[in-house]
Amino acid sequence: MEEKQLSEKESFELITSMINKAKGRIGETGTSYLLWGWLILVCCIVQFVSLYFFNYANSYYIWYATWIFLIFQFFYFRKQKKLITVKTYTGEINRFVWLAFFICTVLVIFISIYLKYYEIIYPLILVMYGMPTFLSGIILKFRPLIIGGVCCWVFSFFSSFVASEYQSLFIAAAVIVAWIIPGYILKQIFKKEN
């Protein structure tokens, strides 16, 4: 960009074009959606198979993998940070939405286990899960996440009518539509943006 004397009209055009360049970005790599999506999907399938086909009572042990993954994610994202050259206000809000989801989910799981309401854990997780997915879709103006969020709520409703061993399949379906598919689309968009 060369320095030249701007007319008022040119100034306006420059402001508009720069604002559009900055605000048109989604600025989301999609990596966290994909990593978590695949992890939860594998956990759901392993739990279902071990419970349904092998009648393994401690099938829920697989969920401890999420804690190990959380530590991995912490280090992974410290490395990834250098890929992101701009921080937007929407991205910042989005991060806090997911933080709130994480805190609420941990509390819901703890309360349900402590009060021994095991069969409501999965439907409640789906209710919770729909919220940040839907809100992220609204914040980023990204339709696949909005649809994913609504699907979570629909799955949550229907999962309350089935036996508990089948409920993990609803979570598996939810992560495919709410994280894995939008994750791949976001990855494509991020590649184009950068």
Binding site: L14, I15, M18, I19, T85
Partner: peptide, 23 residues
């Protein structure tokens, strides 16, 4: 602000929280 590059930088920065030099 009435300079092409400075105005462009300010227009970008007003739309985001913060941006790297490379951006």
């Amino acid at each position: 602000l009435h300079s092409q590059l400075r105005l462009a930088v300010m227009s970008l920065l007003i739309s985001v929280k913060e941006a790297e030099f490379t951006f």
